[in-house]
């Protein structure tokens, strides 16, 4: 019924986990582990109208166990009820060139990390029968998958994630605007990006989504090497998106650079919090389970 901690993929180093298999396998393992670690199911929304049985999953509340079924078949089932209003979630995924970078060979790139995170998030939402869609963007919207709640929809999402190729620049507003077209009802918007973009513009768009009644969650993905400046004594640092470069001596700038990044992250956090947006700063070395747990901690729908 439960996995030991050492076997839970959601708590392992992301790079190590990624070596175990493809995105699908990793996402499943992570989600299983994540759900096993919860003392209560993230799935709320049970209503009085019985819909069907489903096998017990770790984390499900025991009150929904069908004791009679357990007595008859000696198997654990929970009773699932028809929700009156299903949640619709839209994941907005940044696939710009800046995401395809890692500060070390022993770490996943931000893009690869985000792919697995998005796969896990979508699996969680789909398992609770929430319709889930996906918008992939760089400087334009590269791909869009409408929100569906079908059980096989996760594979559609995985296919879109798996085939994406990192692009050029970053412009999140078109993708976020597209959300309003794809989510007619109030839903959950999840932005996964390194946020190397125009903050004011993006924040305005996110606020707009909030005004439309959507819940908004932002995953700010960063490589640890972006927090602490390193490299040779003097180097020309080139932006892979714009090609712009800056010559600097890391030793001289290290502290002030760290301060700048801290201030930037703090500014994002403060701006999001002020606008009722959930903000999560995610390093690519952080186990997926921690991220999911932190993300679901305050989300009624996600956990």
């Amino acid at each position: 019924m439960t996995n030991s901690t050492s076997q839970r993929l959601d708590l392992l180093d992301p790079y190590t986990v990624a070596q175990l298999g493809g995105i699908e396998l990793v996402a499943r393992g992570v989600v299983e582990g994540f759900l096993a670690g919860l003392h209560r199911s993230p799935f709320r929304g049970f209503s009085v109208e019985f819909a069907e049985h489903r096998p017990y999953q770790p984390g499900d509340e025991l009150r929904y166990l069908d004791w009679k079924m357990l007595a008859r078949s000696d198997r654990l089932f929970v009773k699932q009820y028809e929700e009156e209003t299903n949640l619709r979630a839209m994941i907005v995924f940044d696939a710009s060139a800046s995401m395809d970078w890692s500060g070390s060979q022993d770490r996943l790139t931000k893009l690869e990390y985000s792919k697995r995170l998005v796969a896990a998030l979508s699996l969680i939402t789909l398992r609770q029968r929430d319709a889930t869609g996906l918008i992939i963007f760089d400087e334009v919207v590269r791909d869009a998958v409408r929100a569906r709640a079908r059980s096989g929809h996760w594979w559609t999402l995985l296919l879109a994630i798996d085939r994406l190729v990192p692009g050029g620049g970053t412009a999140a507003e078109p993708a976020l605007r597209m959300v309003t077209d794809l989510l007619r009802r109030r839903g959950l918007v999840i932005l996964v990006s390194d946020l190397l973009l125009d903050r004011a513009l993006v924040l305005r768009t996110l606020q707009y989504l909030r005004h439309r009644g959507h819940q908004v969650m932002v995953f700010h993905v960063m490589d640890p090497a972006e927090l602490k400046l390193g490299g040779p004594a003097e180097a020309r640092f080139r932006d892979p998106e714009t090609g712009a470069s800056v010559t600097a001596r890391p030793r001289e700038l290290r502290q002030v650079y760290e301060s700048t990044v801290r201030r930037t992250v703090a500014a994002w956090r403060a701006a999001c919090r002020g606008g009722g947006i959930d903000y999560h700063h995610v390093l690519t070395t952080l186990p997926f389970g921690y991220v999911l747990r932190r993300a679901t901690a305050r989300r009624t729908r996600l956990g």
Binding site: A97, S98, M99, W101, D194, L196, D223, E226, G231, P232, A235, R236, F237, R238, D239, P240, E241, T242, A244, S245, V246, V261
Partner: peptide, 8 residues
């Protein structure tokens, strides 16, 4: 030397 660095 040139170093690719997204957080330029």
């Amino acid at each position: 030397p040139v170093v690719v660095f997204p957080a330029v």
